[in-house]
C-alpha cells in the first residue's frame, strides 16, 4: 500500500476517534433535551466543572483557597493528601448530583411552564455562572489530569501498519492514541448502559414518559421534579466522563468548556433526541472535518475544521431536518 493511502486511512481513524470525543459531549445535550425539552447550553461548562472538581479532589486542593487566603490572610492551598482516582471520581459524581439538585431547586422549579427559549436563556446564565464559580473554586491554571488511563501511541499498531507499506517506502507506521481508543470503549459502554437504563428500568421508563408528554406523565403520578434531578445528574455524569477524556487529552483548562461548540453540529446531524444519533453524528462529523481539512484544506488556506462541521450538518438538515435519527414532528393545523 502507498504511504498516501495509509496516511489517509490514519486520518479517517483519527477522525473516528475525534468523533467519539464529540459524541461524549453531545450525549449530555441529548439526555437533557429528551427528558425536559431544554437545550442545555451549560453542558460544556459542566464538563469543565466536573473535570476541575475531579482534579481538585484527587490532588487534595483546598476549594476557594484564593478567596480564603485573600480574606483571612492565610496561605492554605492543599489538604496534604491525595485521593485514588476511583474515590475522586465517586466524590465528583456526588458533587454533580448536588449540582443537579441545586439546578432543579434554584432554577428549573421557578421556570415550570415557561417557553423553551426562557429555559434555554437560563442555561446560558448557568453556563456563565459556572465558568466563574469553577475558576473561583479551583483556580484557572492548566491542570494535569491522570486517572490511570493509558495514553500515547501503540507500538503494536505502528509495527503492523509499517509492514503494510511498500518495500522501502518512507512510512513509519500508523499512530492511534490509546486514550482515544479508551474513549471509544467508554463511549460504547456509556451508550449501551444508557439505552438499557432507559428501556428496562422503572426510572428509565419514567424518563421516557416525561420526554413524551409532561402532562400525561404528571397525570400518572410521575414526579417531574425528581425526574429533572435524575436527568441533570445523569447529564452531570456524562459531563464528568467527557471532562475526564478531554481533560486527560489536553489538560483541564477553560477551553474544555468550548467543546460544546463541537457538539452542536453533531446534534444537528444526529438529531436532538437520539442517543445512537449522537454517536453516529459524532463519527460522521469527526471523519468529515478531518478528511476535508486533510484533502481540501490546503487548497482553501487551511483552518477549515471549525466551519466545515457546520456546513456538513447544514447539508444533512436540507434533506433530513429532524437529523439522522431525530423524531419527525408533524403538527396539524
Amino acid at each position: 500500500m502507498s504511504p498516501v493511502f495509509l496516511n489517509t486511512l490514519e486520518v479517517i481513524l483519527n477522525g473516528l476517534m475525534a468523533g467519539v470525543m464529540y459524541s461524549l459531549v453531545a450525549l449530555g445535550f441529548v439526555l437533557i433535551y429528551k427528558a425536559s425539552g431544554i437545550f442545555n447550553y451549560a453542558q460544556g461548562v459542566m464538563a469543565l466543572f466536573a473535570a476541575l472538581t475531579l482534579v481538585g479532589l484527587q490532588t487534595g486542593q483546598v476549594p476557594f483557597s484564593h478567596l480564603i487566603n485573600a480574606i483571612f490572610g492565610t496561605e492554605v492551598h492543599h489538604f496534604g493528601w491525595e485521593l485514588p482516582a476511583l474515590v475522586a471520581i465517586v466524590l465528583t459524581l456526588g458533587v454533580m448530583v448536588i449540582f443537579a439538585i441545586l439546578v432543579e431547586r434554584l432554577v428549573l422549579r421557578h421556570l415550570v411552564g415557561q417557553e423553551p427559549i426562557i429555559l434555554f436563556m437560563a442555561t446560558i446564565g448557568l453556563a456563565y455562572f459556572m465558568e466563574g464559580f469553577g475558576d473561583l473554586m479551583w483556580g484557572s491554571d492548566i491542570k494535569k489530569l491522570d486517572v490511570g488511563l493509558p495514553s500515547g501511541g501503540s507500538f503494536w499498531l505502528e509495527d503492523v501498519t509499517r509492514g503494510w507499506a511498500a518495500e522501502g517506502a518512507d512510512y513509519y507506521g500508523m499512530y492511534i492514541d490509546l486514550l482515544d481508543v479508551w474513549a471509544a470503549i467508554v463511549a460504547t459502554i456509556l451508550v449501551v448502559s444508557l439505552t438499557l437504563f432507559s428501556q428496562y428500568t422503572k426510572t428509565g421508563r419514567a424518563l421516557r414518559a416525561v420526554a413524551d408528554d409532561h402532562q400525561a406523565a404528571l397525570s400518572v403520578g410521575i414526579d417531574l421534579r425528581t425526574i429533572w434531578v435524575i436527568t441533570w445528574a445523569i447529564a452531570g455524569f456524562v459531563a464528568l466522563v467527557a471532562g475526564v477524556m478531554w481533560g486527560a487529552k489536553s489538560g483541564v483548562q477553560f477551553s474544555l468548556s468550548l467543546i460544546a461548540l463541537k457538539a452542536l453540529p453533531v446534534l444537528m446531524l444526529g438529531g436532538f433526541t437520539s442517543i445512537p444519533g449522537a454517536i453516529v453524528g459524532g463519527l460522521i462529523i469527526g471523519v468529515g472535518e478531518k478528511l476535508f481539512e486533510y484533502a481540501i484544506g490546503p487548497m482553501l488556506g487551511g483552518a477549515t475544521e471549525n466551519w466545515f462541521a457546520y456546513v456538513l450538518a447544514l447539508l444533512f438538515l436540507v434533506f433530513r431536518p429532524q437529523g439522522l435519527f431525530g423524531e419527525k414532528i408533524i403538527e396539524r393545523v
Binding site: 486520518v11 483519527n14 477522525g15 478528511l291 481539512e293 487551511g302 483552518a303
Partner: peptide, 21 residues
Amino acid sequence: QFYPIDHPGAEQAADWDKLKA
C-alpha cells in the same frame, strides 16, 4: 508552509497529519 489553527486550538490532528505528509 502555512498551517493556520482556529481558536482555541485544542483540535489539530488533521493539520499535523497534513504537516507529516
